[in-house]
Nucleic acid binder design. Structure first.
Length: 468
RNA sequence: GGCCCUAUCGUCUAACGGUUAGGACAUUGCCUUCUCAAGGCAGUAAUCAGAGUUCGAUUCUCUGUAGGGUCACCA
């Protein structure tokens, strides 16, 4: 269906191949804001059979670290961003130097004497000779933007001949790498006029620009570590699905228009249209991300779900002898409760998991369900024990080869009708789970099996009969 | 403050200049034969304001207001 084999062979014809890039600086871990930029550039390239390149902008030696660089690659790998080329800006200083020398020779830039105002300032920097004119460019998302560059002055393009500053480096690199679609955050709009001036000075063609709206924190300011942005790898560690992250993050600032909410990466690539991107910023909403993730989890087969889940299963439970015979049933129960796989551990901490694998400990009083459940019936420890005894006796007669939630229900239901549904079902459920809240008694019985179910009901019975 | 960008439910968003302004998340209520979860149904909730253009503006123009971004020898 997808046009994967449409035109993979290279053609030297008039229509230029689209080249986009993602140019992160390794001065922080990769969060949803930067990742979204990468994703959109990736979509544009993939949708048009173009190229998607990576450039690590590590010219700031002070703040760039190996660790952050690794985090960027780790994240891109997890979130399935394959690229067609990668360069490090620090490996390209010779190229920058060449252009700097050329600009100086042509008097389009000059070495300027400075009076240092802060620590680290040089006595001498290289400034761009600003032609002081109005620069207009067309943004794929916003239309025409024009800025009078006069107030920029002769801005600095290098600290020294060997130390280019961002503005010079991006322009040279994009030019030499053949980038013809510059897709970046809205926060770069003020830089674009400078870059165009430099492009004109070095004779580089002007690429197409698309300035994406910002990803925002809940307070509507730029998404950042300070404002709660997390490394995306944190979501991996919590057991989120990559497809879910891609799906959710794609929908911040863009959507294909229909009423579908859940998409695969391939579907998004096919539908993506950079010109339909929103102009205003969008808040990163963890709550909706959870929902999207859950939807993707639900698309998994039983075995896929189980494999993912087991990575987060508490060791202590896995080592229980009951584990392997009950886990499949537990997977089905847990399936419509979890929003991410690590939540299984939260369930365990709440005491909502262990009882599937081992008999619960609980206070006898919670067996006598809340006042409202009794509906006026007179109920005490002895009479409830009696009811459980009857239930047990009836269940005993049920053959274990037809033991399942339906047969258990058929067996218990008549008793529940005559003794009071609330009373019977609550008491059975609590004797099986030990909790006020849990799945219903029938599904619990099925999961535990006949033997264990009867054992737990019998246990509840004797707890009730104890003299205090 | 200068420059730039932006403005539809709380949030993400849909709507050739003509719709009862739609959907999703969240939220509220009800149903779903005990609790919880899931599910179903229903509800609350938005075009920033003011002019103009037009037979008719969410949509086009202007002004105002608000918010954001950016003003480094960081990227």
């Amino acid at each position: 269906m997808n046009n994967t084999n449409k035109s993979t062979e290279k053609t030297e014809d008039a229509t230029e191949q689209i080249v986009t890039r993602f140019a992160p600086s390794p001065t922080g871990f990769l969060h949803a804001g930067a990742y979204r930029t990468a994703l959109f550039a990736y979509f544009v390239a993939r949708k048009n059979n173009g190229k998607f390149l990576i450039r690590i902008e590590d010219t700031d030696r002070e703040r760039s670290t190996k660790e952050f660089e690794e985090n960027i690659f780790e994240t891109m790998e997890w979130l399935a961003l394959d690229y067609d080329g990668m360069e490090k800006q620090s490996d390209r200083v010779e190229n920058h130097k060449m252009y700097l020398e050329k600009l100086i020779k042509e008097d389009k830039a000059y070495v300027s004497k400075e009076t240092p105002v802060k620590e680290g300032d040089r006595e001498e920097v290289i400034r761009f000779r600003n032609p002081n004119k109005v620069v207009t460019f067309t943004d794929l998302i916003r239309g025409d933007i024009s800025v009078d560059t006069t107030d920029l002055g002769d801005f600095v393009i290098a600290k020294s001949i060997n130390e280019p500053v961002f503005h010079l480096a991006v322009v040279v690199d994009d030019f030499e790498m053949g980038v013809n679609h510059v897709i970046r955050g809205e926060d770069h709009i003020p830089n674009t006029p400078r870059h165009i001036l430099i492009m004109e000075a070095i004779g580089a063609p002007i690429p197409k620009f698309a300035h994406l709206p910002l990803v925002l924190s809940p307070d509507r300011t730029k998404f950042s570590k300070r404002k709660g942005a997390l490394p995306l790898t944190v979501y991996r560690d919590k057991g989120y699905l990559p497809e879910a992250l891609i799906n959710y993050i794609s929908m911040i600032g863009w959507n294909p228009g229909g009423e579908q909410d859940i998409f695969t990466k391939e579907e998004i690539i096919n539908l993506f249209d950079i010109t339909k991107v929103q102009k205003g910023g969008g808040i990163f909403d963890d709550v909706k991300l959870k929902w999207v993730n859950k939807e993707h989890m639900l698309k998994l087969s039983h075995d896929e779900y189980k494999n993912n889940l087991e990575k987060f299963m508490p060791e202590e439970l896995v080592s229980l002898p009951t584990y392997s015979s009950r886990i499949d049933s537990v997977v089905d129960i847990v399936r419509d409760r979890l929003e991410y796989f690590k939540q299984i551990q939260e369930m365990d901490e709440e005491g909502d998991l262990a009882y599937f694998f081992k008999a619960p400990l609980y206070d006898r009083e919670i067996l006598l369900c809340a006042e409202k459940m009794r509906k006026g019936k007179d109920l005490n420890h002895e009479s409830l024990a009696k009811i459980l005894e009857i239930c047990k006796a009836e269940l005993e007669k049920l053959e274990s080869n037809i033991w399942n939630k339906d047969s258990v229900k058929d067996t218990l239901w008549p008793i529940a009708e005559s003794e009071g549904r609330g009373i019977v079902l609550w008491a059975i459920r609590v004797s099986l789970s030990g909790k006020e809240k849990s799945p219903d008694p029938f599904i619990l019985s099925e999961t535990l099996g006949k033997e264990e179910t009867l054992k737990r009901i019998g246990e509840a019975e004797s707890i009730l009969k104890e003299k205090l």
